[in-house]
Design a protein around this nucleic acid. Structure first.
Length: 891
RNA sequence: GGGAGUUUAGCUCAGCUGGUUCAGAGCAUCUGCCUUACAAGCAGAGGGUCACUGGUUCGAACCCAGUAACUCCCA
């Protein structure tokens, strides 16, 4: 069977992915083996695969595949998140297209549409993951609104309520006027925005007393006496003002103490209050206090017992309390009121101003601070043990630098607003009685039972369930437990076997609102950690360092990339540029490098496959075989070490160099028979065995091409289940370090000879003579075959004296001579040697300085001193040889 | 404003306990090769004041202090 000239990723990817599925290689059920478990960070059902997912899931798949190949029972649980606000927004948009408005629908009707949407589009992202090669146990696929998972959410709510950890209260929340819901602090993205700062004049209410004092206090100009000016970016909220606040120490405004002012346009009187909260040097030093529409103002208002006047509707339009511009959107109102103020002579000036504005992560609407009745979950009690797990190392964060950030957040944790004014999600199990009291119960019936204790006359229809649903994260935080049904059946075989899970791979931006809360939930509901290691990936940016986003259009479509470079190429590309915890500057060229890499593997395979075997030949390659064997074993340790430290890109790079440099560029070149000549059977057999091992090491990074090659007839007949995906990684073999060191010297010699060719423009085809004056103990005779082949030598001889008239070089302390037909350029050669000599003299000076320094000799560790002494001896030996060479040239 | 992090070759990054001929890797670049596995390749080469300034030390890319630039988190 011949092999195609190039590897065709698409075919292989489809073929092997379905083969793996058909043979249940991804399936995991508890058994005697040690488990290795990852739960996927569930992507939003609304999501389509983006580069962040690619990175994240590539890492998880590499870890899972490697664990599988190390004999662990590897289980990767996939699933999706119901993403209440994002999904609800999509459904609303879909309905709008069909000419349906959400407010014309009943809750059950709306939910029917939502489920319809979920069934239709919810699986897309998981299908996309399959294209990447993700080896999830798809039979375990979960959704955060599956019956069991939703039930767990409700039970959890009730549990925490009974413990007194959930309460209801009026709070200033982040209001998303487009989603018409509160969102958590973590879902607000702050961006710097160019705004305008409006300076607005408020007329001071003049009474007789102040008129008198004004006439006395002549140092005030009439204007400042009659008006005060405030600076605001939000002129449309002046109708909600409750006071003007000034700093009590501000000398400019002493005359305003105890005064009142008129709000322009509506002429409502508000007091001037004093508080050192106001910064004197910002704006005018006068702050308008608008308790209903700013968090800080709200707190200030509470302190000074100011009224709260909310002039905005839920959708961000002005209501009747605004008196003017009623029904206008807040931003339209801002423009209009500026004109009105101008006309009324109340607008002093307008300045450009940069400030931070909060945007909703889900809808990108400008967040409106708003007071409302919400449900909260107390955090401080739960945060403590969750912090301890990380501080005492039970849970490792990778990289460790995130521990600080984690601690900072956990020590300053705020209560969690868990209610959302949406329909899509788990509805809060609170039942209101006609008198306003409420009962927490799992079902209406249960609530009814409880309510009848208080009031015999109630009918079941009188109970009204809370309209709100729970924050999506209130289901996500249960994920590692709920995917194994650990709430309903806390002692089931799955949860006992798989939990705690091993590694969690996620983005640092959700360290707090997901990772931290999962740790809390793990402790609260199972008394143990949910996972042992948290690998935090970076943010995928473009090569200019910009975050990838739809708006910028700088994100490549992952599926296009896979089409272009193959899944293996993209996987390698992602990992090549992804140090743990650092952002990565992604560029297509990394995928190209990945593609080039598997192309290299493919071609190496073609080479080996093309060989004819002649059983009568003896094996001339034992040295090369022993060397690569050692080198491979050495690389295995290196790679294992890198994986142990979660240095995935380094593990990949070590693999890359093992395959490309050591195997292809050196080993295969060492053993490669002359064109059309056969190879001996021993070398052939060993090389195929090496290749098989290489496929295993490569598999977690490049699952498809390795599986494709694995099944080639070169490796003989394979059973149906004998697949690379379940092959076991080779156990560590012996390392002959002497051999490894010798071959490093041999490689240097080869490079030096090639160098001479290059500089003298001698064709690689022309064979050269190499004379060795061996001063070290290396037996170069053993490497004669390799040297002759790779340096193309016609002769390798050993000499006791220097060879004159030859190009020479030094490797370690051994001297090498290449006699050339042409004359040696004495001047150039002298210069070269002189340079080397100067360097060595300088080097020796620094070594000697250490060795003659008493403090060094008394303070340094003995090994260090020994090393310095060896350096000195080596350098002196080299120096001697170079000096001899120089005097030889001089004669 | 508070906290954390980063700064090493053109780019992306290693450099682990201060001590190896320590200044590294991959990519990119340059030179020469279409040498029948691979031009998606082969063989070579050139790139760096380790951000800056001081300090500690026999010895600093590494430890300390300060400065600058950038990034992130919180307000």
């Amino acid at each position: 069977m011949s092999i195609a000239k190039t590897y065709l990723p698409k075919e292989a990817e489809e073929k092997w992915y379905s083969y793996w599925l058909e043979n249940n290689f991804f399936r995991s059920v508890p058994d005697d083996r040690e488990p290795y478990t990852i739960v996927i960070p569930p992507p939003n059902v609304t999501g389509v695969l983006h580069m962040g997912h690619m990175l994240n899931n590539t890492i998880q798949d590499v870890l899972i595949r490697r664990a599988r190949m190390k004999g662990k029972n590897a289980c990767w649980v996939p699933g999706t998140d119901h993403a209440s606000i994002a999904t609800e927004a999509k459904v609303v948009a879909m309905l709008k297209e069909r000419g349906i408005s959400k407010k014309d629908l009943t809750r059950p009707e709306f939910l029917d549409y939502a489920w319809e949407w979920k069934e239709k589009y919810g699986g897309i992202i998981l299908d996309q993951l399959k294209k990447l090669g993700a080896s999830c146990d798809w039979e375990r696929t979960k959704f955060t609104m599956d019956d069991n998972l939703s039930e767990a959410v409700i039970d959890t709510f009730i549990h925490l309520y009974k413990k007194g950890l959930i309460y209801r209260g009026i709070r200033m929340v982040n209001w998303d006027p487009h989603g018409k819901t509160a969102v958590s602090d973590e879902e607000v993205i702050r961006k710097e925005v160019n705004q305008k700062l409006y300076y607005i004049r408020y007329q001071v209410v003049v009474d007789e007393l102040s008129m008198m004092s004004e006439s006395v206090a002549t140092h005030h100009s009439p204007l400042t006496a009659r008006y005060l000016t405030i600076a605001t970016t939000r002129p449309e909220t002046i109708m909600a003002d409750a006071a003007i606040c000034i700093n009590p120490n501000d000398e400019r405004y002493m005359h305003l103490h105890g005064k009142k002012v008129f709000i322009p346009l509506i002429n409502r009187e508000i007091p001037v209050i004093l508080d050192d909260y106001v910064t004197m040097d910002f704006g005018t030093g006068c702050l308008k206090v608008t308790p209903a529409h700013d968090l800080n103002d709200y707190e200030l208002g509470q302190k000074h017992h100011l009224p709260v006047i909310d002039i905005l509707n839920d959708d961000g339009t002005l209501n009747e309390k605004a008196q003017i511009l009623v029904g206008e959107d807040r931003f339209a109102a801002r423009k209009k009121i500026a004109v009105m103020l101008e006309e009324a002579g109340a607008l002093d000036k307008v300045e450009e101003y940069k400030s931070q504005v909060g945007f909703s992560e889900r809808t990108n609407a400008v967040i409106e601070p708003k007071l409302s009745m919400q449900w909260f979950c107390k955090m401080d009690e739960m945060a403590k043990p969750a912090l301890d797990y990380v501080l005492n190392g039970d849970i490792k964060l990778i990289p460790e630098k995130f521990i600080n950030t984690y601690r900072h957040w956990m020590e300053n944790v705020r209560d969690w607003n868990i209610s959302r004014q949406l329909w899509w999600g788990q509805q809060i199990p609170a039942w209101y009685l006609p008198n306003g009291e409420y009962i927490i119960a799992k079902t209406r019936e249960e609530a009814f039972e409880k309510s009848r204790i208080k009031n015999q006359d109630l009918r079941i229809e009188d109970l009204v369930q809370d309209e709100d649903v729970l924050d999506t994260w209130f289901s996500s935080w249960l994920w590692p437990i709920s995917v194994f049904d650990g709430f309903k059946n806390p002692d089931n075989a799955d949860i006992n076997y798989y939990y705690p899970t091993n590694d969690l791979v996620t983005a640092p931006e959700i360290l707090f609102f997901w990772v931290a809360r999962m740790i809390m939930a793990g402790h609260e509901f199972r008394g143990e950690i949910p996972f042992k290691n948290v690998y935090l990936t970076g943010i995928v940016r473009d090569k200019l360092g910009r975050k990838m986003s739809k708006q910028l259009g700088n994100s490549p479509d992952p599926l296009d990339l896979i089409g272009q470079y193959g899944a293996d190429g993209v996987r390698v590309g992602m990992l090549l540029c992804s140090p743990a915890g650092n952002d990565l500057m992604f560029d297509d060229s990394y995928c190209e490098q990945g593609r080039n890499f598997y192309n290299k593997v493919w071609n190496a395979f073609r080479l080996v496959k093309g060989w004819e075997v002649d059983n009568s030949l003896t094996n001339p390659n034992q040295v090369a075989i022993d060397w690569f064997d050692s080198r491979f074993n050495q690389a295995m340790i290196e790679i294992e070490d890198n994986f142990g430290q979660y240095r995935l890109s380094e593990a990949l790079m070590a693999t890359y160099k093992l395959v490309w440099d050591d195997f292809c560029a050196w080993y295969l070149e060492m053993i490669k028979p002359v064109y059309l000549q056969p190879i001996d059977s021993e070398t052939y057999k060993r090389t195929i065995a090496f290749f098989e091992n290489i496929l295993k090491v490569l598999h977690p990074f490049m699952p498809f091409i390795t599986e494709e090659l694995w099944h080639d007839e070169l490796f003989g007949e394979r059973d149906r289940l004998d697949c690379c995906i379940v092959a076991q990684l080779p156990i560590n073999g012996e390392i002959n370090s002497r051999l490894l060191a010798d071959v490093e010297n041999v490689k240097q010699i080869i490079t030096q000879v090639r160098n001479i060719r290059n500089s003298k423009q001698i064709s690689p085809k022309e064979a050269l003579v190499l004379s060795v004056k061996a001063n070290s103990g290396i037996n170069y005779l053993a490497y004669k075959a390799i040297l002759s082949k790779l340096a193309n030598l016609s002769e390798l001889n050993f000499v006791n004296d220097k060879v004159t008239g030859a190009s020479s070089f030094l490797v370690s302390t051994d001297e090498f001579f290449v006699p050339l037909n042409e004359n040696i350029d004495v001047a150039a050669e002298t210069e070269r040697l002189q340079k080397e000599k100067d360097y060595l003299i300088g080097f020796l000076r620094s070594v000697n300085a250490k060795l003659t320094n008493e403090r060094f000799m008394s303070n340094a560790k003995p090994e260090i001193i020994e090393a310095e002494q060896k350096k000195k001896a080596d350098a002196e030996a080299k120096l001697k040889i170079i000096e001899e060479g120089l005097s030889g040239l001089a004669n």
